[in-house]
Amino acid sequence: MPTRRAVLILSASMGAGHDAAAAELARRLTAGGIDAEVADVLDLLPLRLGPALRGWYGWTMRSAPWLYALVYRVFFAARHAPPASPLTSLAARRLLRLLRRRRPDEVVSTFHLAAQAAGTLRRRGLLTARSTVLLTDFAAHRLWLHPGNDRYLCPDPATAQEVRGVTGRPASCYAPLVRPAFLDVAPRGPGAGRRLVLVAAGSWGVGDVERTARVLARTGRYRPVVLCGRNAALAARLRNAGVEGLGWHDDLPGLMGRAYALVDNAAGMTAREAMAAGLPVVTYLPIPGHGRDGVLAMERAGVSLHARSAGGLVAALDRLEDGERERLRAAARALFAAPPAEACFATGAGRRTLSGLGA
């Protein structure tokens, strides 16, 4: 009797986007008869460095975004940056132990540190199973791009072309991984009166979303509702200022079905969910680093409008009345017309071994 294929998906609990994509891929693979397991690459770091890294990132994004912008430019985006993250070798060493126990047929990375660790092992011949990187960002900074990995799955054609040029590895497009509930949304018409505009702040509730909400409220035409994620302090501040702030919301597809637009600041999972639901995305005041680069990449891909000023934000929302809404929906439909990610794993070689690991 043939052995079921096994896929190990490496994610990271940095926000919710990487984990959400990994969980949805695992669900689909399991439904297709593949053994899929998700592991958090932060758990592979010694000395509790994973929780420390997660805490540092959250603190900088809330309290010192300028510091994260500096780190991003030095380590993630600079032309002459160090060849790999200082954490790569630490993660790779423990990933090797995990691979010894699990022996997957394929490793899939949905976070850049995982892509670095798996690519390092693959290049050294210590990982003989195929290594795939599933990009969850529209902007592929260099830490996503380790040439030791076998292939890349990308969110849009421009990103795929860039990845091929940098790594020399195969890169193709996949339909963004969102829960089926978002694909089943039947958007309502814009309606009359103050139109509901969702303002995304990610799962950690970061970015200058209070400023965004004030811009929208002053128009008298748009009713801002801020998605605060798990940031209870942000929700409380907004309520004290007379702005609606929602905590973690289980019925986000239903809320998107009633909304006029989403104002996004990170080009992450919420933006993809909005596109799946047929909700136009306008970006404004992006968070630094990968958020800003992702927002600009989405604009170049034609799947969102990017506002560079308060007046530009209002003008972009107003433009949705003049045909821009349908153009954005068509661009989003094109993204989701790409092959589903799970189809890329439907076939493959039998279970492989890991060089140097023994029996």
Rank of each mutant, 00 (worst) to 15 (best):
T3R: 14
T3M: 13
T3P: 10
A6L: 06
V7R: 05
I9G: 01
M14C: 03
G15T: 09
A21T: 12
A22E: 07
A26D: 03
A26E: 10
L29Q: 07
G32C: 05
E37K: 15
V38A: 09
D40C: 06
L42Q: 07
L44A: 04
P46C: 07
R48A: 14
L53A: 15
R54E: 14
R54S: 14
T60W: 02
M61A: 08
S63V: 13
L67H: 13
L70D: 10
Y72Q: 08
A77P: 02
A78Q: 09
R79W: 06
A84H: 10
A91L: 07
R93Q: 10
L95Y: 00
L95V: 01
L96F: 01
R97W: 04
S109G: 07
L113G: 11
L113H: 12
L113R: 13
T120R: 15
L121Q: 00
L126Y: 03
L127E: 05
T136D: 02
A140C: 07
A140V: 10
H141N: 05
W144N: 01
H146R: 08
N149E: 01
A158N: 03
Q161Y: 00
V166R: 15
T167G: 06
G168V: 12
S172G: 12
C173L: 01
A175D: 04
V178P: 10
P180S: 05
L183Q: 10
V185C: 04
P190G: 08
P190R: 11
R194M: 11
G202I: 08
G202D: 10
W204I: 00
D208S: 12
D208W: 01
E210Y: 02
T212V: 15
A217P: 01
T219H: 07
V225C: 09
A232D: 14
A232M: 01
L234W: 03
L238T: 08
A241F: 05
G242P: 13
G245F: 13
P253T: 07
M256Y: 03
A259L: 12
L262T: 10
A266C: 14
A267G: 12
G268D: 09
M269I: 15
R272Q: 15
M275G: 03
A276S: 09
A276K: 11
L279R: 05
V281N: 10
P286W: 02
H290T: 06
R292E: 15
D293Q: 12
V295W: 11
V295Y: 10
A297S: 14
M298V: 06
R300T: 11
G302T: 09
V303D: 08
S304T: 14
H306I: 00
V314M: 02
A316C: 14
L317E: 03
R319T: 06
E321G: 13
E324M: 13
R325G: 09
F336L: 07
P339V: 05
P340H: 08
P340N: 02
C344I: 00
F345A: 02
F345K: 04
T347R: 14
G350Q: 09
L354Q: 11
